[in-house]
Nucleic acid binder design. Sequence first.
DNA 1: CTGTTAGCGCTTTCAC
DNA 2: GTGAAAGCGCTAACAG
Lengths: 334, 334
Amino acid sequence: MAEKSVPTMKDVAREAGVSLGTVSNVINGVTVRASSRKKVEEAIERLHYEVNSYARGLKISKTGTITLIIPTLDHPFFAELAYEIEQQAYQHSRKLFLCCSNGIAEKELEYLSLASQNKTDGIIALTYSDISSKVPAHIPLVVFDRYFDDHSIPRIASDNYSGGIMAVNKLYELGCRKIAFVGFHSSFPGEAEKRFEGYQAACRQLGITPMVLHESDTVPAPEAIRKFIEKKIDPETGSTQFDGIFANTDYDACNCRDVLESHGIRVPEDVQLIGFDGTKKFYSGEYYVSTICQPLKELAKKCVDMVINESEEDLPSLTLLPVHYACGGTTKDS
Amino acid sequence: MAEKSVPTMKDVAREAGVSLGTVSNVINGVTVRASSRKKVEEAIERLHYEVNSYARGLKISKTGTITLIIPTLDHPFFAELAYEIEQQAYQHSRKLFLCCSNGIAEKELEYLSLASQNKTDGIIALTYSDISSKVPAHIPLVVFDRYFDDHSIPRIASDNYSGGIMAVNKLYELGCRKIAFVGFHSSFPGEAEKRFEGYQAACRQLGITPMVLHESDTVPAPEAIRKFIEKKIDPETGSTQFDGIFANTDYDACNCRDVLESHGIRVPEDVQLIGFDGTKKFYSGEYYVSTICQPLKELAKKCVDMVINESEEDLPSLTLLPVHYACGGTTKDS
DNA sequence: CTGTTAGCGCTTTCAC
DNA sequence: GTGAAAGCGCTAACAG
């Protein structure tokens, strides 16, 4: 056998002694006489033929790809979400283009343009800018956790509002009466803001006076948290003005714990702490802190299902998935 | 403007009043009269034209994609490596197909077949089985950290052997005289085995008697580590037979620390501990443990550079990148 | 420098 | 059921 380049359908047809169209039919599961099917299948086997999805994609203008635009994989939440989305895409026989934008608007746009050139079948976006107007109308888009001006774009998120309420109620249930909120907000509006709203609503209902750190995410979180907490420590007694903290993310919660412990304040004995996300330690699988868990797998599944939308239904403009509480040692239910 | 589908090069040519070939030329940077270039560029702008990379890919049989086959993103080392590889791919104007195989051989093969159908320009593989014979000869393959039977396949890894030596020497330098090794080996041979060899070599040179846990990775690591360590604790005095541990991974090191601390043995006061990988806590960016760091970014860069191999050189069959030590609080140099 | 043209490998009518 | 043929959007050769 001479130096053969990769075989095409034509080679298979010749080898099997049938026509091009017949080969195509067996590959695409169209009814074909059993004897022809057999001949073709054998020829495919012999030649190690594989369809060229670029040729097919050009012809049918479907590529079997999904594009995920995500800031980074450097945070376990993003990494796990990306992982779950890949697994879902695989389940649906789609290949996944991974695009890490670092949250930079220009990169987001460039990735978008690439996705469009590559005729991707759908885009799942976690972006920091409103890309909705930049996405070609014919390509399905699903966004995670963000608001866009164009409210017709399907949005998927955790039920952050309920999560905020849940956290406060849990702290209350565990004996906290002075519950602070610690968090940061992005300039670009996202669903996560609802956590703070949930906190406020729960405080109102429980008759708790809010005590809040809620600055822009452009300030360095660890320092801001340190200052906030230190201001609330009585220099005489060393006791704090709060006995519970609901932190907007596990990241913030971890920072809170570090600051508290560095001042000899015990968690959870003196102050109980609940974060948000459900981030786990890589080596033990334990939660870093007590937390409101986002349903990562379900979120991923929804993203993929909706961007594929095999049922061709009209998609809801907002899909909120339920969260749940998990103890991670920073509350007294441990 | 009526309901137009996405514009093609032909539309641009018509709009600009030039021929198809000319449009192609301006897009591909071939010299073109300035006036024509201008007309074409304007037409492109007006029509929002974007090249169809599937058509181009079919024509030139290059897709501008790289495929990464990796077990999971559920471990920070893999997640970060994937991230860095994506960033490198982007730098080189390549799109990245992400494939998470979960370390399952059949999935690895299926992804390989998909990659081949998709005419990907190169494959970077972190696999648990020897896929080398299954990769079409014409598509470049680079493997990370694994041996394959086919030794002509370029392999990239950290200099694990030196890392092992480095760890032992560091522990020695910090006062340890009885240094244990804790690790697990896969049935499929990888570069990481060299860490153990480095440990042995260093012990030999320093006159240290090896004390080793080195079982198959099919046993549950936390339990095996617990048993190993407990057997080495004097039930009377509570002291250990070792004063230093070199763990094969940060994961193992974290488990060691948990076991030690649960027995009231202090790290690093009583026992010093060095892991391997350079894994960091997501919220503070600190190392989990003192560790030998793999140069993730450089590894990623090498993988991408080599799989693209723009210089068309013959590739070295093994590329080892230097590691370095970093203190992470489990050694006395903190 | 520019226009014309022949495919890249595949799917899909359309006659047979 | 099957074969022939057109053409998806693009590039690259070729003539002019």
